[in-house]
Amino acid sequence: MLQWLKRKREPDATGNNELVLSEAFPSHDILWRAGTHLPIPDWQQQPWPEDGDEGTLHRHANGWAAAWLDATGSALDERYTRAESANFMLLSVLEPRATRVLLDYLERSRKRVLATLPGIAADHGHGKTVVMVFGEEENYYQYISHYGSGSSQPEAHSSGMFIDAGYGHFVFTQGAFDTMEPVVIHEMTHCLVRHLPIPAWLNEGLAVNTEHRFVRPRPLYRPQELEFLFTRFWNAATIQEFWSGKSFIRPDDGQALSYELARLLVQLLGKDYDALTRFCETANYQDGGEEAAKTVLGMGLDDLAAVVLGPGEWTPSPESWTDGTEKGQF
């Protein structure tokens, strides 16, 4: 049986939350994936309790999470420690004060996203949300390589992401703190809409717009420049990549232009928040959200796209998506 030290937050004499060491608890055995550089649980094979109340299930999930983080910290080096807040469990190389600051910011960001997207964002599932902050980029890229992100540092720089695989969790690099605020809000949105089978463009559009609500954006393009690039890039073929989600993983400017188009489409939908909520409840990535658009919005996605792109062949054609679909959360 694995053992872990459970940490909790208690107020000190000044009323601030301090991280204090609590009692040790035995964990359930964890099944680990074979052939990995770092401990990666095999969540698909991990047995889940057949019954139990919500409290029991949460404690069970938290036990797995704690054992998982402790094993990961031990596999890295002695600098890594685990700390907790009400809704998060953090593994990092941060000093105690920085740890408290990050956990407090994570809690505030969670509340912000839930308040910004009522009826859309939700905190389903069991166990605290896991967050890992790696001290070195090499360890960060090595870790995310286990989730299909390549075996070495990719050309496109990454400072953080939400990994929606088994036990969903955030991963960041320590050097990302100067830019962590927008990354946390963006990835937190992905985390809190993961229960919805929405298409990638809707997923990313929600994340970008929520991020921009709380963090002043730095526009990539001037309006006239964006209009020119849209006209040059979007056509009957590339729009199919957008609806299927594949354009978000293009290696060229099409990736950035996909995020810009998603942002603008969700802005349009957000003018009627009730309709946006109903659309998110029924949209499915398998058809890009086309059936939900017709049912909820009373129009096709081609009509929505035409507001931004002008007249064109913008209707989704799922039968042409031979490369499959994406759900977002890249």
Rank of each mutant, 00 (worst) to 15 (best):
E95Q: 13
G119E: 04
M1W: 08
K294S: 11
N209E: 12
E225V: 15
E84W: 00
R59N: 14
P26A: 13
A34P: 01
Q267M: 13
L226K: 07
N62K: 07
H212S: 10
D272M: 07
E227R: 15
E181P: 06
G150D: 04
M180Q: 07
N139D: 15
H169E: 03
G298C: 06
K294T: 15
L268K: 01
C280P: 02
L31V: 14
A306P: 01
G245L: 08
E138Y: 10
A24E: 14
L257C: 03
K327W: 04
W4Q: 10
H124L: 14
L5F: 07
S22K: 11
K6I: 06
P316W: 00
R218N: 14
P182T: 12
V296C: 02
H37W: 12
W234P: 04
R216H: 11
F279R: 02
A34L: 09
P49N: 09
A176K: 01
Y143R: 11
G288V: 12
H212D: 15
L102H: 05
A256W: 08
A122V: 05
F172A: 07
W321M: 09
W314L: 10
M188K: 04
A305D: 03
E225G: 14
H58W: 05
S85F: 03
T210G: 01
L265M: 15
V93N: 13
W314P: 08
L202I: 12
A262M: 05
D272N: 15
D302P: 00
G175R: 11
G289N: 00
E281S: 14
A86C: 02
P199M: 05
E227T: 14
W4R: 14
S258W: 06
D252C: 11
L192H: 03
P96I: 09
R278Y: 09
L102K: 03
A305H: 02
S244Q: 06
P217M: 10
P11M: 01
R82T: 14
F279T: 07
P41C: 05
V101T: 11
